[in-house]
Simulated scan of single mutants.
Amino acid sequence: MNWVIPIIIFFDQLTKKLSETFLLEKNIKIGFFQLTYVENTGIAFGLFKDMALFHGIFSTLIVIFLFILKEKYKEKYKFFTTSFDLGIAFIIGGALGNIIDRIRLGYVVDMIYWPNFSIFNVADIFVTFGGVILLYHFFKRSKYGEKNV
């Protein structure tokens, strides 16, 4: 599933570039959410603002840890699990998309605004879905045993 990572990064960076191009002057309402351009110097929900270097280093360490975990998991269990690999790939792809922003811009571009909830981007969506997939994987593994996952 390593091929998924560059695809996630591509679509994340593409949507960020499109929002920089088309959303600086206006917002676009689509159903119950809207597209808008925001420069986020924090992390999830805008927490810990103006700490780009820390966020970049921390995110990079998480990506390295996930690559190591993935390789150790494959070595230990000697089989390939699609849900585990996909979850890790989603998280790594999303994290790298946001790391690129932090290095390139000093902030992360967010553009999907969900009123009364948050503003986020494509990378954040993949990190979230990757986490959900991993939770599912570990739940199934603990419930049914590792040979069935």
Rank of each mutant, 00 (worst) to 15 (best):
67 F>K: 11
7 I>P: 01
97 G>M: 04
50 D>N: 15
24 L>Q: 13
57 I>D: 08
64 I>W: 14
38 V>D: 00
60 T>L: 10
128 T>L: 12
53 L>N: 06
59 S>T: 13
60 T>D: 01
106 G>C: 14
136 Y>T: 08
8 I>W: 00
19 S>G: 07
9 I>K: 06
129 F>T: 07
12 D>E: 15
80 F>E: 05
79 F>T: 06
86 L>E: 01
76 K>N: 08
19 S>K: 06
104 R>W: 13
109 V>R: 02
111 M>V: 10
78 K>E: 11
81 T>L: 04
131 G>P: 12
111 M>K: 05
49 K>A: 10
64 I>F: 14
25 E>S: 13
108 V>L: 02
26 K>Q: 14
5 I>Y: 04
83 S>M: 09
132 V>K: 09
82 T>F: 09
56 G>F: 13
53 L>D: 05
72 K>C: 05
24 L>D: 04
24 L>S: 10
127 V>N: 03
25 E>G: 10
114 W>G: 02
115 P>W: 11
6 P>V: 09
113 Y>V: 05
4 V>D: 07
54 F>L: 10
10 F>R: 03
93 G>Q: 04
2 N>C: 05
143 K>R: 15
73 Y>R: 05
63 V>R: 11
6 P>E: 05
13 Q>C: 08
28 I>W: 15
149 V>T: 14
142 S>M: 13
143 K>A: 15
11 F>T: 11
146 E>Y: 11
75 E>S: 12
5 I>E: 05
30 I>L: 14
115 P>M: 08
140 K>T: 07
126 F>P: 01
129 F>P: 01
9 I>L: 04
92 I>K: 02
27 N>E: 15
42 G>V: 13
43 I>G: 00
13 Q>K: 13
19 S>T: 12
125 I>P: 01
138 F>W: 10
55 H>R: 05
136 Y>N: 06
45 F>H: 00
107 Y>M: 08
47 L>I: 10
89 A>Q: 10
51 M>L: 15
90 F>M: 15
6 P>I: 10
48 F>E: 09
87 G>M: 09
4 V>A: 13
53 L>Y: 07
130 G>C: 12
145 G>F: 06
83 S>H: 04
58 F>C: 07
124 D>F: 01
52 A>M: 10
32 F>M: 02
116 N>A: 05
32 F>H: 01
64 I>V: 14
75 E>L: 12
90 F>I: 13
11 F>R: 07
71 E>Y: 10
138 F>K: 02
43 I>L: 03
53 L>R: 06
47 L>T: 12
56 G>N: 10
